[in-house]
Nucleic acid binder design. Structure first.
Lengths: 345, 345
DNA sequence: TTGAAAGCGGTACCAG
DNA sequence: CTGGTACCGCTTTCAA
């Protein structure tokens, strides 16, 4: 049975030398053509182009980057398990924003994941070993070992989300405090008084800040802050269900919930429905993100819109700026959020 | 306001030369220590180790791979949009399987996405340019341009899912025909006679084969195959909803649905509920994948379990074998599936 | 066990 | 506009 294109194996890649020979010019000229230098005669240019075409020449990036010090690729590092990475629409949209910007500059985006300690060690070697020109770091938790190592090694880094401790690393963040504040203020204005919150992880800026916004809003409205109305999740749907159960158990009289992510809010809705609490009649619910699922829940979710694609784009821009201007100092950017009112309040 | 670790910028990475100088040995000896050669005296070894530690030396991978011809990293290429990649749990589990195997060999897995034509061109340059040692290709559609180019360039490739045309490329696949066959046979045995199917994309092996299994099972059971009972989706939940609506419109009398993915089955369930058809009373539903959502639908989904982590592992193993034995020929592996019966039938 | 030196495949400077 | 050539940082003979 014949199969098409049963090519001879691994005829080793042609080198610039061979292209030069085939085109009857020097290596230098081939290099000029490849890199689009204007100072090449048309004759030479077309001879080289033909040779490249014929031999299927592709420049060896290792050799090139050894001298240029660039690789033309950027890493997106996600310190998160595959399951969360792939379950949370936040990542997909962020990636879309980033890759758009990078694609315009013909930069390749490579995605790297790391969980276990040994994986993280390998990852660090990979990143500092010159495989990539810069790093976009998403969903980092408490420990700033990696970004600091990178900075120390001279690898440009931009964080997604502000760091929770005082490290001088550039970042883009959403206005989590403001967003949470708006959400809770809105609930209070609707007459809710026993506003619970399913907060995010305390080792992530987004977790801490959304809780802070919640507190601030209650304070301004002269509503007492009660520990019993606060329970943390980890941004997943499952953790939202879990937290909602705990909160209802603890405070059956709660009349509103602010969840620090839409996924957790969706989990909360499900539990409320199971326990026959009407939404928004008995309990009002607000999420955070305005991700796609906010429109698929029943009722649809009132939530805080984050400009997620924009977030990704800004991270990429910041990284590019950092590469162009290595001594540009630490950059910080906070993006506004917006309250989106739907059926759950 | 002081911020910790405000390091001096980009003190250029130390080279092996500097380590050698610091340790009072030659470059060759440093290299031997780095690469764990046994033929180094203890004295030299510890001197080098100290110097490495002190200077924070990390080998330049470009320089190394220029000579070794290896990069110790493998690419996972997904020819799919970010949104589908991140929405389908299939990918997460596959990645987990792969990265486990690769991590054991201290190989870095890098994930690459490509959609637009220009992105694909860049991706091809990246892959053939020597950035990686091998490619795992997932969710490829009709066109085999990329894997064939890679093969031609001597880059080892393994496909996830059999190719839809006769190209001689190694692959791992699930027994999609068999799985679909089992699903539909089960439905028929339960007395269902008007079994519809929401099939997968016709440019993907999984799509074609699951439809083939459906047909085969009907044939064996002497149930006529009807075009009107078949409508395609693209494995997403949305497409499942869409297809279910079309099918109900066309054949209001259908009494069972075999969906080629759990996500599509979940979409179908939702539409059935909206239209007040009881499941499994009026309509029985079977999915494919046994992904996490199969247990979160109401009722829980009867489905075909694919060994997804195993799938990822086998792909990685196959790729490693191919790298070790470049002339080993084309490898093919088909993994068994299993019917899992739950509430939807 | 160690060091000297020859590349690996490019880029870019310097003459011409 | 073109070619010759000196590196880039590392691995790997080959001799010592």
């Amino acid at each position: 049975m014949t199969e098409i294109d049963d090519v001879e194996l691994a005829r080793s890649q042609p080198t610039i030398e061979q292209v030069a020979a085939a085109a009857g010019v020097s290596r230098a000229t081939v290099s000029r053509v490849i890199n689009g230098s204007p100072k090449v005669s048309d004759g030479a240019r077309s001879a080289v182009s033909n040779a490249v075409e014929e031999l299927g020449y592709v420049p060896n990036r290792a050799a090139r980057s050894l001298v240029t010090r660039r690789t033309d690729s950027m890493a997106l590092v996600v310190e998160e398990s595959e399951s969360r990475l792939f379950a949370d629409p936040f990542f997909a949209r962020t990636v879309r924003g980033m890759s758009g910007v990078l694609a315009d500059r013909d930069l390749q985006l490579v995605l790297l994941m790391a969980q276990s300690t040994s994986e993280r060690a390998r990852l660090k070697r990979y990143l500092t070993g010159g495989h990539i020109d810069g790093v976009l770091l998403l969903s980092h938790h408490g420990d700033y070992e990696l970004p600091l190592s990178l900075k120390r090694a001279g690898v440009p880094v931009v964080l997604g989300g502000r760091p929770t401790s005082r490290v001088s690393i550039s970042y883009v963040d959403a206005d989590n405090v403001g967003g949470a504040h708006d959400a809770v203020t809105f609930l209070v204005e609707q007459g809710r008084r026993r506003v619970a919150t399913i907060s995010g992880p305390s080792d992530m800026g987004a977790g801490v800040d959304r809780l802070r916004g919640y507190r601030a809003a209650l304070g301004e409205a002269n509503v007492a802050y009660e520990e019993g109305l606060v329970h943390p999740g980890d941004f997943t749907r499952e953790s939202g269900e879990e937290a909602m159960k705990v909160l209802l158990e603890r405070r059956p009289d709660l009349d509103a919930v602010f969840a620090a992510s839409d996924l957790m809010a969706a989990g909360a809705l499900r539990v409320l429905k199971e326990q026959d609490r009407s939404v928004p009649g008995d309990v009002a619910v607000v999420g955070f993100d305005d991700s796609a699922i906010a429109r698929t829940t029943d009722p649809q979710l009132t939530t805080i819109r984050q400009p997620v694609e924009h977030f990704g784009r800004e991270m990429a821009h910041m990284l590019l700026r950092q590469i162009e201007t290595p001594d540009g100092g630490v950059q910080k950017l906070v993006l506004e959020t917006e309250l989106v009112i739907r059926g759950s309040t």
